[in-house]
Amino acid sequence: MHIIILSAWLILMISAVLLAISVLQTAPKSKRKQKTSRRRGSDRPAAHIKTNSRKWKELVQLLHGDVDTANRLVQGEKMRNPNRSADWCVDKALWQLERDRRG
């Protein structure tokens, strides 16, 4: 009786190991998100955003030069608050970024 139980356990363990190996082989090599390309040469806002350059530069600096993300944040604020000015949207995006980083 013990031999049957041990044999069943051994077969179960071998099949679990083979299943784990097959899952690992089919899984993507890296689940890390690839970094987006950052445009460090131009720290200007999108053409349709007219804004205070000091606040804009501060936002881009907090984002480590990622102008695309800065534009996305400001455009998102403009969509949520269509009656507000571009300066207000930049200020709001800056405030939210600082708030979120404080924890």
Results as ranks from 00 to 15, higher is better:
residue 1 M to W: 11
residue 1 M to V: 09
residue 3 I to V: 06
residue 3 I to S: 05
residue 5 I to V: 07
residue 5 I to C: 02
residue 5 I to S: 11
residue 5 I to L: 14
residue 6 L to Y: 15
residue 8 A to W: 02
residue 8 A to E: 05
residue 8 A to G: 04
residue 8 A to P: 00
residue 11 I to H: 03
residue 12 L to H: 04
residue 12 L to N: 03
residue 16 A to C: 03
residue 18 L to N: 03
residue 18 L to F: 07
residue 19 L to E: 04
residue 19 L to R: 08
residue 19 L to P: 00
residue 19 L to A: 09
residue 21 I to A: 12
residue 22 S to C: 04
residue 24 L to Y: 14
residue 25 Q to N: 03
residue 25 Q to H: 05
residue 27 A to F: 13
residue 27 A to V: 06
residue 28 P to D: 06
residue 29 K to G: 02
residue 33 K to G: 01
residue 33 K to L: 12
residue 34 Q to H: 02
residue 34 Q to F: 01
residue 34 Q to A: 06
residue 35 K to F: 00
residue 36 T to M: 03
residue 37 S to K: 11
residue 41 G to W: 11
residue 41 G to E: 07
residue 41 G to F: 13
residue 42 S to F: 11
residue 42 S to C: 10
residue 43 D to G: 15
residue 43 D to F: 06
residue 44 R to C: 05
residue 45 P to M: 13
residue 45 P to G: 08
residue 45 P to K: 08
residue 47 A to K: 08
residue 47 A to G: 07
residue 49 I to H: 00
residue 49 I to R: 00
residue 50 K to H: 12
residue 51 T to S: 15
residue 52 N to E: 10
residue 54 R to T: 06
residue 55 K to N: 15
residue 57 K to S: 14
residue 59 L to N: 08
residue 63 L to Q: 12
residue 63 L to G: 13
residue 63 L to A: 13
residue 64 H to C: 10
residue 64 H to T: 14
residue 65 G to Y: 11
residue 65 G to R: 06
residue 65 G to C: 11
residue 67 V to K: 14
residue 67 V to H: 07
residue 68 D to C: 09
residue 68 D to P: 03
residue 68 D to L: 10
residue 69 T to P: 00
residue 69 T to W: 05
residue 70 A to D: 06
residue 71 N to E: 09
residue 71 N to A: 10
residue 73 L to C: 03
residue 73 L to V: 05
residue 73 L to G: 02
residue 74 V to P: 08
residue 74 V to W: 04
residue 74 V to K: 10
residue 75 Q to I: 04
residue 76 G to W: 00
residue 76 G to H: 05
residue 76 G to Q: 09
residue 76 G to D: 11
residue 77 E to R: 14
residue 77 E to Y: 08
residue 78 K to D: 01
residue 80 R to C: 13
residue 80 R to V: 06
residue 81 N to C: 02
residue 81 N to W: 03
residue 82 P to M: 12
residue 82 P to L: 07
residue 82 P to F: 10
residue 83 N to D: 14
residue 83 N to A: 15
residue 83 N to L: 15
residue 83 N to G: 12
residue 84 R to Y: 10
residue 84 R to T: 14
residue 84 R to K: 15
residue 85 S to R: 12
residue 86 A to C: 15
residue 86 A to N: 15
residue 87 D to N: 15
residue 87 D to L: 13
residue 87 D to K: 13
residue 91 D to C: 06
residue 92 K to G: 00
residue 92 K to V: 03
residue 95 W to M: 12
residue 96 Q to M: 15
residue 96 Q to W: 07
residue 96 Q to H: 09
residue 97 L to K: 11
residue 97 L to W: 06
residue 97 L to P: 07
residue 98 E to F: 01
residue 99 R to G: 02
residue 100 D to C: 01
residue 100 D to V: 03
residue 100 D to Y: 01
residue 100 D to L: 09
residue 100 D to Q: 10
residue 101 R to K: 10
residue 102 R to K: 13
residue 102 R to N: 10
residue 103 G to H: 01
